[in-house]
Design a protein around this nucleic acid. Sequence first.
DNA 1: TTGTATGCGTTATCAT
DNA 2: ATGATAACGCATACAA
Lengths: 330, 330
Amino acid sequence: MATISDVAKLTGLSKATVSRVINNHPYISKEKRALVQDAMKELGYFPNPSARRLRGHITSTIGVIVPRIVNPFFSYLVNSMEQVAYKNNYQVLMFQSDENIDKELYFLNLLKTRQVDGIIMTSIENDWDNIEPYTQYGPILLCNEYLSHSNVPTVRLDQTKGTYIGIKHLLDKGHKKIGYCTGGLFAEDGKDKDRNQGYQTALSEAGISVNPNWIFINKHTIDDGKRVMSQIMEMDDKPTAIFTGSDEIAAGVIIEAKDHGWRIPEDIAIIGFDDQPIAEMLDPKLTTIRQPINQMGEKSVEGLITLLKDKNGSVENIELPVELVVRDST
Amino acid sequence: MATISDVAKLTGLSKATVSRVINNHPYISKEKRALVQDAMKELGYFPNPSARRLRGHITSTIGVIVPRIVNPFFSYLVNSMEQVAYKNNYQVLMFQSDENIDKELYFLNLLKTRQVDGIIMTSIENDWDNIEPYTQYGPILLCNEYLSHSNVPTVRLDQTKGTYIGIKHLLDKGHKKIGYCTGGLFAEDGKDKDRNQGYQTALSEAGISVNPNWIFINKHTIDDGKRVMSQIMEMDDKPTAIFTGSDEIAAGVIIEAKDHGWRIPEDIAIIGFDDQPIAEMLDPKLTTIRQPINQMGEKSVEGLITLLKDKNGSVENIELPVELVVRDST
DNA sequence: TTGTATGCGTTATCAT
DNA sequence: ATGATAACGCATACAA
């Protein structure tokens, strides 16, 4: 492997000069610069990132933590981040936490050892108190997730409004018995609290009170959706519509409903969240809340790079708008 | 950041001894070992991977190149690789080439500079002649892709058989006019050549000759599928069944067909490839060829680790079986 | 404008 | 069983 010494030897210059060329320092004669560049090409020279990291603090690598890459929401998110990063000459180191606190901590340590310059977290498993100490080693930006009681830079979606307009849409369609799935616990201050609030606000504005039987907690997957629908079918007092937490849950609900001969939206109206590609593939096509995933990825990376470049700068929190996409399931 | 020196200082031992503890060397007294381990914990010490990489050749990082992470086939593949790697104390550095030869080369350079110990390529953009030189820096394993004229270790699926059993299934159902989508060009020795061969063999065994009008090349996405169906609908002599190259293309075909009132499988039978989650979400549920993605990811990582551990060892090529999953679209 | 020398954190070699 | 030291490849402070 060609090193900086090889280039120095070949050109007859010192390692320092070669290094200066690599790093675009001023005060280098044009001839030597050209000389070095030719030599680098000839030798197929490529700077060794490990040495650079060890020496300076430059890595131009961004770490991204996702809970699960097979979740399309996150694979699209990572994809958009990667595109923007690449354009800015940054690399993305993707890591899936598997919703495991140890894996998450393991990855945060890469910040400590400067394998990554900064980290974008799209989910949070550990308590913030355990994560906060890592911010001294580099910026951490929250994307999609957020914490009300901390002041980390955050890029997120207006989840409250997303849910609100979804429920509003169902109300406008005449529904009064509206079920609701959440990925969390329907607690005041827990996961998905914003969405919960949107649900509650919309209902209370319509003068409808929440029926606890129609609240389904901890739902995420297609199978969860199927189970939800099974439960609904066994109820005496059934909801006429259901707001699911994701297109995947909605897919499960639809599949199960159709398997039992229910008509959608006549027997039950269904609304998703995300507007993933499957939303259009389902039959009936899924009414859902579109999240600007690409934009969120872009803003996150741009924000982190800003933080990286201006060590003392700050990035204002960004809240992206969501949108109702009406199709045939409502 | 705590370094090995800090640990040495705190314990009153030398850096060398600390290093030995870290690397599980023999000949260390139990007491000192315990002493060091306590100190490491106390200081929150974590070895610096850059320094290790620079010094030795140990990184325990595997690089994986995928064309596009948003393609579920690849996100599931990467996921299974990551799981196995983590169990073996390896990290996965995922990179998407975007089917761009420069990005691919860029990533291969990480092998040269030892950022990764070895690389698993799930797609190949450059000519092998341009990739081959990198094998001197570390093992490269091909997963899913393969090259007939090279001897890189390869883990792949029996694509020929996959296509063969799919076509055979359609023939058994009485179809004689069977369309076919390929991701490549239907060339003798190009991309997807194995699948093409499976298609041709099955047809010729049934005494049916290939109708070039029913061959659709370069198809990958849902939209491609929609276009394929549009074309079919305009034909005078229409196929009664179509073998698509992926569940996504199949989804596009189904959507377009239903949008125009065609019944499936009565008006046209459709068969996918992959058995992705969407296969079961489509209506009608999709008959498809199941690929053992998880197994492929596992075998790849295990194979690469074997290569990594035994520098001179070799890994035999692995060909995994595929399976026909009959649902309602045929 | 260019060169010399030092250290980043680690591990292998050679002593002890 | 443990310690001192050199070297990995690079970037910077200091000298020239």
